[in-house]
Design a protein around this nucleic acid. Structure first.
Lengths: 213, 213
DNA sequence: GCATTCATCTGAGCGGTGTCAAGATCGGTG
DNA sequence: CACCGATCTTGACACCGCTCAGATGAATGC
C-alpha cells in the first residue's frame, strides 16, 4: 500500500533489505492484518522482486520470526515502562495490564508472535522462563517483581508456577478481550481497562488496586 | 491420504456432502495438522472436485466454522463428563483440567476453533456467556458449578468475572502447555497433569486438591 | 586502473491455493 | 414423461511459496 521508500530509483543493491523487509511486514500487518502478510506482498511493499527476500531469510517462517522478535522487544519495553511507573504489589497488576493492552493495540503483531512461538514450540528468549533469564525479559520482570514484593526466592518451583499462572492468565485475557461476548461487562464496569483489571484481579497474583487478602 | 469412502464409484450426487466434508476436514486435521487443511485437500479427501464444496459452504471460512462447531460440542461433552465424575469444589478443577486436556489431545482442532472465533470476534453459542446460555455450554457449566458450591448468584457481575477469569486462565494454559520451556516443571512435578493442576490452582477459582485457603 | 569474485537482485517458472462461471448430471415434481 | 433445480465437474484466473539460471554491481586482489 504505502510506498514508504524515500525517492528516486532504489539502487540495485538495497543496502539493508533485511530490516526493510521486517519494517514492510510490520506496515502491512498493521494496515491489512495477518492474512494479507504474504511474502510476495512484503517484497512488493519493500519495492523488490518476490525472490529477493530469500537472500535474507530461509523462508517465510523465518521472516515472520524476525517480525515476532520485534514484537517481543516492543512488549518488553512497554512492560518495563509500566513497572517503572508503579510501586509495590501494584507493579504486578501494571505488568499484566501492559501485557493485555499491548495485545489489544497490536492484535496482528501479537498473533504473529504466538504463531511463531507455536511453530518452534517455545517462546523466544525475551520471554523465556528459568533462573538465568535475561533481566529485561517479560517473564523475569514478573518474577523479580514477585520477589521484590515478598515472594520467597527459595521456593523456586512455587515461584515459577506463580509466574506461569500469571502469564497464562494474561495471555488468555489478551486473546479473549476482543470477543463481543464481554462488551456488556466492559460497559458495566466502565470501560475496557476496568474490565481487564477486574478479570486479572480474579486470578492469583494480580492484586486488586484496593488490596485484597 | 486415507480414502475412507466405502467402495464403488460414488454416485454423481453425493447425498450428504456437507457432513462428509466436515468429516474429511477433521480427518485431515488430525493426520496432517492445520496447515494442510486446504479446501482442495478436503475436497480431494472427500472424493469430489475442488469446486464441489462451494455448493455447501459459502467459502473456506464457513467450512472451518462447521469444523470448529464440532470441536466445541466435543469439548462440551468432555467437560460435562469430567464434572459428572467429581463432586464439590473439585468439579471446578476437573472442568479446567478437562479443558486443558482437550486442547492437548486435539491441538489442531483447538486451534481451528479459536481461529474461527477470532474471525467472528465471538465464541460460538456452545461457549457463550450470559445469563440465558445453553445448559450444556462450557461457560454455563462453570457458572453453575460455582453457584452449586456456594457462589452468590445475586452478585451477577462478580460471578461472571470469576467465570471469565477461569476461562482465560484455562485457555492461556491450553495454549502454552506445549511450550518446551515448561518441560522441567512437568518432570519436577511428576507429569503433565500435576503441572496443569498446579498452574490452575495458582489461579483464582481453581481450588487445590488438598484445599487451600 | 583493471579484472575477478561473490553477495545481491531479477525474471521466469513450478506446483499449489481460493474462488468463480459455464456446462454436465441427476433426483424429484408437474 | 418432461422438466426443473440442486448438485457436481471442468476450466480458468489470480495469487501464493519457493527454486533456479542469469543480470548486476560493490568489494577485493593485483
Amino acid at each position: 500500500m504505502s510506498e514508504a521508500k524515500t525517492i528516486g530509483p532504489r539502487p540495485y543493491h538495497h543496502g539493508d533489505l533485511t530490516h526493510a523487509l521486517v519494517d514492510a511486514a510490520r506496515r502491512l500487518l498493521e494496515a491489512e492484518g495477518p492474512s494479507a502478510l504474504s511474502l510476495r506482498a512484503v517484497a512488493r511493499e519493500a519495492g523488490v522482486s518476490p525472490a529477493a527476500p530469500y537472500h535474507h531469510f530461509k523462508d517465510k517462517a523465518e521472516l515472520l520470526d524476525a517480525v515476532a522478535n520485534v514484537g517481543w522487544e516492543l512488549l518488553g519495553d512497554q512492560m518495563s515502562a509500566a513497572k517503572a511507573a508503579t510501586t509495590g504489589m501494584q507493579q504486578l497488576t501494571a505488568l499484566g495490564l501492559a501485557y493485555v493492552c499491548f495485545a489489544r493495540d497490536n492484535p496482528a503483531l501479537y498473533h504473529v508472535m504466538y504463531d511463531a512461538a507455536r511453530d518452534r514450540e517455545e517462546v523466544p528468549d525475551s520471554m523465556q522462563s528459568g533462573t538465568q533469564g535475561n533481566k529485561d525479559s517479560a517473564y523475569c520482570m514478573v518474577r523479580d517483581t514477585m520477589i521484590e514484593n515478598g515472594a520467597d526466592p527459595a521456593q523456586d518451583t512455587h515461584l515459577e508456577l506463580a509466574g506461569v499462572a500469571a502469564w497464562c492468565g494474561a495471555h488468555g485475557l489478551a486473546e479473549m478481550a476482543s470477543f463481543k461476548q464481554f462488551d456488556h461487562l466492559k460497559t458495566e464496569l466502565g470501560g475496557e481497562l476496568p474490565f481487564f483489571e477486574a478479570v486479572l484481579s480474579h486470578m492469583g497474583l494480580f492484586p486488586k488496586p484496593q488490596q485484597g487478602c
